[in-house]
Design a protein around this nucleic acid. Structure first.
Lengths: 348, 348
DNA sequence: CGAATTTATTTGATCGATCAAATATTTTTT
DNA sequence: AAAAAATATTTGATCGATCAAATAAATTCG
């Protein structure tokens, strides 16, 4: 194939100027209908495709968003970020945006990467995941005026309402509230909770949902609530241990909610009494085992992230007032209810 | 911050010409040491970063590889491609390459996307996954002289040795051969196999490994071999059904190998006799349940893919002889042995 | 030592698109 | 119908880097 045609080739073929061809592609509204059609058929005829890099050089825009791929978390829930990535790519595609991956060895290195991608005009903005309190990346991005949206709310005291920090998050409390309600509606009263250490903000959020739903129903005492809760780090074996502990401490158990599918899977293993267990993240494992689980609706998150991000792009270009768009979005997860397809049990 | 410095700024600061700055970055060998150092410190001083799009426009190279993200397979084994993606991104990063994602609704649409990305100089080449016999994408890429490497060998008759088709694949037969041997070495003689329909090339490959290892040991008859095999489509429930069928048909069973972790998980559920089950893909589920599994070593695959691909880039540039580099690479998977952490059993 | 080579460095042109400003065309107004 | 305003289209410059060819400097050679 001879080299790709350029705007000039198209202009020649259509009997107009380069700029008119450019206008047909970027602001069709200002080109007269007849001219536009002529140009459009020339484009089709020649099979013209704009050269992305040339356009970027001139416009200083890349139509690409960068996202860091974590150095492979080999856990069951690692797939949530992967699912988010899928959803993000699909949504981005619909808007003509591309997704560029990068990796980093740590926070400082990541900032280096962010800088490289931004300075090289490789990306227009970033999507950050796995944010944490006092995350240096967000501050750096804000300081440098680079567009970004985080999947995960900022956990610092006043950061949640920081107008410079756009974020989308899943309302874990609502998810556990719903799961608790579902169990209660099914007749359960003593509903246990296997959660993460108090240092985890995400964990606290989910725990709160359970506690509030339990309190609202008002049929368990504070002491009961304390006995119905076990704290552990994430993991399948940890879930099994926690389940045993819970059974000892709580006496009768009508249902158990867990902060993750890993814990839930572990809990199922030490569950001869067939107590209904609910996990969190709706991972493939939950689907395979037939475990109820709270689904984070990554599609909605991806949609929100892109809306905020493209809004930010627009703002940067037109200098539109900042107050027009909401600065964040909270997505409500939904409970996926499953009947046990199989109940794993501890050996012997 | 004032706008980014350019080569000209650096040149001015270092008291040299633009081109010399460019040379320091791209062919340091031809710049005298003293000059080079002067330029390097000017670069550091000004915090200069090359503008990727400008470079691409001129060089017609993007240092970016494209890969399609499948529209979310919600199965347990979908994660293999995700793990490969992680590995690929990490490896690519080491070589200064970026990974660009895209999606497509089907083969024709994917070809459109490939064309768009290629014509727009967005990518230098592609990595294809999930190839199948008579895949239109590979032919199109070959016809258009676009660099690509597939993860997965071409399954057509003569395609495997097609010098235009670079590929990396995992030797599924070797993986099952090893798994079979491991079971035999542990004393098992009647080793069942739950596989996929014969129409699956990948499935046939794995099945062959099992059959050959069984035949080599020579302690089961052909009739036994037939009785020890069950064919089914992939899935957890399907695995459970297949396991039951196998137990009925085979009589005594010392071990069971499966074509996937999904099947293996299913088999475990209908496994009151605690027969050792081995899966394939070493997914997080296998790790969580404590299931032996054949690991595809995505890192090695990613490494091989990039070596072939960058070799291809070089070939395209220098017109180097094609015979220098091997045209494909077969990666040998390794068996990950685990003791059952938990044995799922069918409810009642 | 001066000519012939080799090695370093610089200059002008270019990649393909869009911006900004100038010119041409059409429409509206008086 | 001429002047003013609005709309279309074109032209020249530019984004930032690298290529190709020209020049300058250092090295080797006779």
């Amino acid at each position: 194939m001879a080299s790709m045609p350029t705007v000039t080739d198209v202009a020649l073929a259509a009997g107009v100027s380069r700029q008119t061809v450019s206008n047909v592609m970027n602001s069709p509204g200002i080109v007269r209908a007849g001219t536009r059609e002529r140009v459009e058929s020339a484009i089709a005829e020649l099979g013209y495709r704009p050269h992305a890099s040339a356009r970027r050089l001139r416009t200083r825009r890349s139509s690409t968003i960068g996202i860091r791929l974590d150095p492979m978390i080999d856990g069951i829930s690692g797939s949530v970020l992967d699912r988010f990535l899928h959803a993000l790519t699909e949504q981005a595609d619909k808007q003509g945006l591309r997704v560029l991956l990068f990796t980093a060895t740590g926070p400082e290195d990541e900032i280096t990467q962010l800088q490289r991608l931004n300075d090289g005009a490789d990306v227009d903005g970033f999507v950050l995941t796995s944010t944490f309190a006092g995350d240096p990346r967000t501050q750096w991005l804000i300081d440098n005026g680079i567009a970004f949206v985080t999947f995960g709310r900022p956990w610092g005291e006043n950061d949640v309402n920081d107008p410079q920090h756009l974020w989308v998050d899943v309302d874990g409390a609502a998810g556990l509230h719903e799961a608790t309600r579902a169990a209660q509606d099914a007749g359960a009263r003593r509903i246990g909770y296997i959660g993460w250490p108090r240092s985890s903000d995400t964990g606290e959020d989910r725990r709160r949902g359970w506690r509030e739903a339990m309190r609202e129903r008002g049929d368990v005492t504070e002491a009961d609530l304390a006995a119905l809760e076990v704290v552990t780090v994430d993991g399948v074996a940890e879930g099994t241990a926690a389940m045993k502990q819970l059974q000892r401490a709580a006496g009768r158990l009508d249902a158990v909610l867990c902060a993750s599918d890993s814990l839930a899977l572990g809990a199922m293993i030490a569950n001869p009494g067939r107590v209904p267990v609910t996990g969190y993240d709706n991972t493939p494992v939950a689907a395979a085992i037939g475990l109820s689980s709270v689904d984070q609706s990554v599609h909605e998150v991806a949609e929100g992230v892109l809306e905020l991000l493209t809004g930010e792009f627009a703002g940067h270009v037109n200098g539109a007032p900042e107050s027009v768009t909401p600065r964040h979005r909270m997505v409500t997860p939904r409970l996926v209810t499953r009947a046990f397809a199989a109940i794993p049990m501890e050996g012997d």
